[in-house]
């Protein structure tokens, strides 16, 4: 690699808003890891994603078509961007776009763009709808759940799983129901919004812990950082959080990576019960928005991912600092109408 030419990395998820995408945090960690010899290309879906306008974070942004426009549309837009920017690595950060990027992986590789993503099997196995079976298969504790299509099935769920029930939408939202009436109300509300199936899950009470994990695709967990939320927003997103030192969590993450040979970053959402048993509640197949905390506590996961994507073999990190705290804050960035017009009219800024 020519050492004078900067490393060009494309990153999505620039929506650092109240329910933030991870892009800006990923970029911050990459800049920490690679210093000044790096050029960041932002890929945005909407015109008001803050990252677009933060010019010391993102060097240049291009709009890309929404995932629903399909793989061909995405592919042709990336070809256009690649011709201008000569991308070396692409790090997608949204759940909804991953399907397309995973499918596009071989095409991108032919173009000379590396990615470091889970396989389609890994991606689908950890889907909310398949998670319980996934846990059964790999000996991981996952709360029991059922996918249902009829409101009558709630009775069976209540019988088998007991109250309270967690009634979840196919993509988002979860409502805790303590009575059949509440469960039915939740069923109708969520099915109207997200369609079927509705997932009914056993309720697990305890402490919520998130773990940022980076797998090398061969069964090794390169980095594991557990974090407990200290304060959450009304949307349940972490506002502040602290790194923890806990061997059971590390072991759980290692088991997960070894069993699945997970490739890339992911976030395990864990509920630890009063007796100390950790349940995996959800697996997000990408870095979390708080990923910069991994860099701050000594294991820069985005930089490590970038190195592996570009062909390096890494040894697992062994230490990190517990007790590191992140506190998210809001900042009113100022820009001019001309920048907004430029990105929305021409698709580039």
């Amino acid at each position: 690699m020519d050492s004078t030419k900067p490393l060009v990395i494309a990153v999505t998820g620039l929506n650092a808003i109240d329910s933030p995408g991870p892009g800006v945090a990923v970029i911050r960690a990459l800049r920490d890891g690679f210093g000044s010899n790096i050029r960041i290309i932002g890929l945005s879906y909407e015109t008001l994603e803050p990252g677009i306008y933060l010019h010391d974070v993102v060097d240049k942004t291009y709009q890309i078509p929404y995932p629903s426009a399909g793989i061909d549309a995405l592919s042709s837009r990336l070809q256009y961007i690649h011709a201008k920017e000569n991308l070396q690595l692409l790090i997608p950060n949204f759940d909804a776009e991953l399907y397309n990027f995973i499918k596009l992986g071989p095409t991108l590789k032919n173009m000379g763009i590396s990615t470091f993503l889970p396989t389609m099997e890994q991606f689908e196995a950890r889907d909310k709808i398949n998670l319980y079976q996934f846990g059964q298969k790999h000996g991981l504790s996952v709360p029991e759940d059922r996918a249902i299509y009829s409101v009558h099935d709630l009775y069976t769920c209540a019988e088998k799983l007991g109250y309270p029930l967690v009634v979840k939408g196919k993509f988002y939202d979860a409502i805790v129901a303590y009575t059949m009436e509440q469960a039915q109300k939740a069923f109708h509300k969520l099915s109207a919004k997200w369609g079927f199936p509705i997932i009914v899950q056993q309720f697990i009470s305890g402490t919520e812990i998130n773990v940022a994990v980076l797998g090398d695709g061969n069964g090794n967990a390169i980095s594991i950082i557990p974090m407990r939320k200290l304060y959450i927003t009304d949307k349940g997103k972490a506002w502040a959080g602290i790194t923890l030192e806990d061997d059971t969590l590390i072991e759980l993450a290692k088991t997960f990576v070894a069993a699945t040979k997970w490739k890339g970053g992911c976030e395990l959402e864990i509920m630890r019960t009063a007796t100390g048993q950790p349940f995996i509640m959800e697996i997000n197949p990408r870095f979390p928005a708080w990923i910069y905390l991994t860099a701050a506590s000594g294991q820069n996961q985005p930089a490590a991912l970038a190195k592996m994507a570009l062909g390096e073999t890494l040894e697992p990190f062994t230490t990190y600092t517990s007790g590191k705290i992140f506190i998210r804050y809001a900042w009113d960035h100022i820009t001019d109408i001309s920048e907004f017009q430029q990105i929305s009219g021409l698709g580039e800024l």
């Binding site: 879906y45 909407e46 015109t47 008001l48 291009y62 709009q63 890309i64 078509p65 929404y66 426009a69 399909g70 061909d72 549309a73 995405l74 042709s76 837009r77 990336l78 256009y80 907004f340 017009q341 929305s344 009219g345 698709g347």
Partner: peptide, 15 residues
């Protein structure tokens, strides 16, 4: 009208 939530058209021309 340029809306923040508007479906952007970049790259979708192939359709």
């Amino acid at each position: 009208k340029m809306n923040a939530g508007l479906m952007n058209k970049f790259g979708t021309r192939t359709e």
